[in-house]
Each structure stands twice: as C-alpha cells, then as structure tokens.
Computed example of a mutant assay.
Amino acid sequence: MTSLPVTDTDYLPEFRARLGLSGLIDVHTHFMPEPVLRKVWGYFDTAGPLLGHREWPITYRDEEQVRLKTLRGFGVHAFTSMVYPHKPGMAAWLNDWSADFARRTPDCLHTSTFYPEPGALDYVRTALDAGTRIFKLHIQVGDYDPNDPLLTEVWGLVQDAGVPIVMHCGSGPAAGRFTGPGPMAALLQRFPRLRPIIAHMGAPEYTEFLDLAAAHDSVLLDTTMNFTDFFEAADPFPPADRPRLADLGDRILFGSDFPNIPYSYAHALYALERLELGDDWLRGVCHDNAARVFGLG
C-alpha cells in the first residue's frame, strides 16, 4: 500500500466534494464523561496490555467543545458517543451522561451501553424508552461473555427494538478471554435478528467475521482504524478477502475512533480510498449505508 501525506485541511473538503457528499457519518466516535475519558487517555499513554503494548499517541486530545468543533469541521454531520463499562455499576450512569450529551448535541446519535449485571434489563429499557439509537459494547475491555445469562433478556429486548450495537468483539489489538468470532456466532444463533456492527471489521479475525456477515444479513461492520498504516502494520487485512469488501459494501459503515487515533482523521478516509473500490462504494461506506441504517438524510 502506498501512503501519501494527507492533511485534514486539504484532503477532507476535496474528498467530500469529489464524492458529492454534503457530509460524513461516523458511527464510531468517543465522547465520554471527562473523568472517564482522561482515564482512557491515561491508559493509552501507558501502552498497556489491552493495546498490545503498542505506542498509541492521541492525535485529538482536546477538551469536549474543541473536539466537537473539530469533528464538525471535518464535515461529519452525524456521529456517536461510544461509552462502555469495564465493571459492574458503571453502565447506568454512563447512559445517563450519554442521554444528556445527546440532548445538548443534536448531531450525535444517542448512544447507550450495558454490562452483564443485575438490573441491566431495567436500564436498557430506560435507554430505549429515552430514544437511544445505538449501543456500544467492548467485549475485550469488559472481559465478559456476550452469552452471559445475565444478558439473555437484554438481548431479547434489544433484538425486538431493532437498535444496532457496535461491538468490539475481535481479538485486536490484544485477545481477551471472550473475543473472537465464536462467542458472536453463538449469540447470533440464539438471537438471529440482532443488528451487531462489528467494530474494526473484527480485526484480526477478518475472514471469520466476514463469514459471519455473509451468513447473517443483519450483521454490519465498521471500518474503524482498518486499512490505515497503523493497523496494517500489526493486523493487515488479508488480500484474498479484498473482493468481499465490495460484495458486502452495503453493510460496511465508516468509523474512525476519533479522538483516540494515532494519525490524522484524513488518513482514515484516505486508507479507504486507496482500496480502489470505487466512488459508489466510498459514498455508501462514508454516508449512505449509515443514513439508511439510522434513517438520516
């Protein structure tokens, strides 16, 4: 892959104009309570085991309003506030924060989360009643089996509601006890109408998660960090699977992991463009597919 220097200021407006896009939709951005985000950034600074001990500098380490201005300046007109608990007792108050954030940030898709714990059904029902548009789960960080019996009724409720769930369930950047395609395949056997969005396209188990998407029409994938120089250096996408990206093009959604990325936002989009899958594919991934999933203009 050839890497060219691309800057947010020069590349992003030209990219949107060339594709005829008034804006981008980013389904994987992180806005959290400031104390939580500072702890997340602190962990990134340690290059800890959950990161595979990789150096991971944060490119957009700014306060909340600056980050919002930056994202909107990139031409992103809809995004998320991905929150996730790493222990019991966190999810309900994270959901309260996210609900308030969505109220004061109309271009943010109201995001919620859950964790296998008593009371999860109640706060998930509360989140759905409040109009949540998307859930976020991080199997690696949370260190839990998505098939935990404490989540059985929750999955049934979310399935019936038809709300998508961004799930970090692949084994990158470091494997967890419950990461990989196996637990997700088991979950979809039990709840075949769930609408998971497989974060990072399931890296590094790309082939297996593409198989899962091929077997289940409800499964979506996001491109978060995929195909960038940073990801390709550690977990390269298998060349043999490149044609499948076109085959599943209407179920792939753009995600960035903003602000927690060690490169420019423009590079995330350039990494998709250099796949050379065509303008229609790029328009779908960067806007149209998510617009359809979330009923956006």
Rank of each mutant, 00 (worst) to 15 (best):
M82K: 08
D45C: 05
T59N: 08
L71K: 03
T80H: 07
Q65W: 04
H28D: 07
W93Q: 10
A92E: 09
L50R: 14
W93Y: 08
D26V: 02
L51A: 12
V40C: 06
A99G: 14
F79Y: 15
G73P: 02
K87I: 10
V83S: 09
E55A: 15
H77C: 12
V27A: 07
K69T: 08
V40Q: 06
L51T: 11
K69H: 08
W56N: 12
R61T: 00
L50S: 13
P49S: 15
L37Y: 07
F74Q: 05
M32K: 14
G42N: 12
P33M: 06
L51N: 10
D96P: 01
K39V: 14
V83H: 11
A99F: 12
R72T: 09
L94K: 00
F31C: 03
H77S: 14
G52E: 02
N95F: 07
K87V: 12
M82T: 08
E63D: 10
F44H: 13
M82Y: 04
F101C: 07
T80M: 07
G48Y: 13
L51V: 07
A99E: 12
G73V: 02
D96Y: 06
T70R: 15
D45H: 14
H28K: 09
R38W: 04
E63W: 02
V27T: 13
Y43F: 15
H77M: 11
R54A: 11
A78N: 03
D96M: 05
K87P: 00
D62F: 13
L50G: 12
F31T: 00
P35F: 01
T46Q: 15
E64K: 05
R72Y: 09
G75I: 04
V66S: 09
T70W: 08
R54I: 10
H86I: 13
I58E: 04
L71N: 03
D62A: 15
F74R: 04
T70K: 11
F101Q: 00
D96A: 14
R54H: 06
S98I: 03
Y43D: 14
P85H: 00
D62V: 07
L37P: 03
H86C: 11
E64A: 13
P33S: 06
I58T: 13
A92Q: 08
S98W: 05
G75P: 03
R38N: 07
A91L: 04
R72H: 13
D26G: 04
P88E: 09
K69A: 12
M32I: 03
T80Q: 01
P33T: 04
E64P: 00
K69M: 05
R72K: 12
W56G: 09
W97G: 03
E63R: 10
L68F: 06
